Amino acid sequence: MVLHSTVWKGIGIFIGVLVLLLSTLASVILGYTDVNFSDVYEAFFHFNQSNKHIIITDVRFPRAIIAACVGASLAMAGVLMQALTRNALASPGIFGVNAGASFLVVLAIA
C-alpha cells in the first residue's frame, strides 16, 4: 500500500518534533552537574531552591530554549532565501550577507 505524500509529511513533522523534544531534554539533563529526569521534573513542579534546581531553571532550560529558537530562525532565514531567489541551492553569498558581515568586521576592527 502506497501512503499519500501528506501522510509522509505528517510522519516527518511528528518525528522532527519528537527529536526536538528529546534533544532539548538531553540538553537540560546532560552537563557538568549530574542531573537526572526526576531532578528536572522536580525543578519545574516542586522547586526547592537547591543548586540543581537553580542550575536547571536559570541556566540549562533557558539555554536549550534559546538554542531551539536560534535554530528555527536560521531555518526560516534559509527558507526565505530559497523562496525569494526561487533557487533550492540558495546561499547567504547570493544576497551579499557574507560581504556585509566582512565589511562590518573590518569596520569594527578599524
Rank of each mutant, 00 (worst) to 15 (best):
residue 40 V to L: 09
residue 70 V to W: 13
residue 76 M to W: 12
residue 85 T to Y: 12
residue 18 L to W: 11
residue 70 V to H: 12
residue 53 H to V: 00
residue 38 S to T: 08
residue 30 L to S: 13
residue 41 Y to R: 01
residue 81 M to F: 11
residue 50 S to G: 09
residue 56 I to H: 04
residue 13 I to V: 08
residue 31 G to K: 02
residue 31 G to M: 02
residue 58 D to I: 08
residue 15 I to E: 15
residue 48 N to W: 09
residue 66 I to L: 15
residue 65 I to C: 14
residue 71 G to K: 07
residue 73 S to W: 14
residue 29 I to K: 06
residue 39 D to Y: 08
residue 51 N to W: 05
residue 58 D to N: 09
residue 39 D to W: 09
residue 60 R to V: 01
residue 68 A to D: 14
residue 29 I to R: 08
residue 74 L to T: 10
residue 86 R to F: 15
residue 13 I to Y: 09
residue 82 Q to F: 05
residue 90 A to D: 03
residue 8 W to C: 04
residue 37 F to I: 00
residue 49 Q to K: 08
residue 25 L to K: 04
residue 89 L to H: 07
residue 67 A to C: 06
residue 61 F to N: 03
residue 91 S to L: 09
residue 91 S to H: 09
residue 89 L to S: 10
residue 48 N to A: 13
residue 61 F to E: 05
residue 65 I to Q: 11
residue 86 R to L: 14
residue 27 S to G: 15
residue 83 A to H: 00
residue 84 L to E: 15
residue 29 I to P: 03
residue 47 F to Q: 06
residue 13 I to H: 03
residue 12 G to L: 08
residue 33 T to W: 03
residue 33 T to V: 01
residue 22 L to W: 13
residue 45 F to K: 05
residue 14 F to R: 00
residue 7 V to F: 15
residue 11 I to G: 02
residue 82 Q to D: 10
residue 32 Y to I: 05
residue 81 M to D: 06
residue 31 G to I: 00
residue 33 T to K: 03
residue 54 I to L: 13
residue 12 G to C: 06
residue 83 A to W: 06
residue 20 L to K: 01
residue 76 M to L: 13
residue 35 V to G: 10
residue 86 R to V: 10
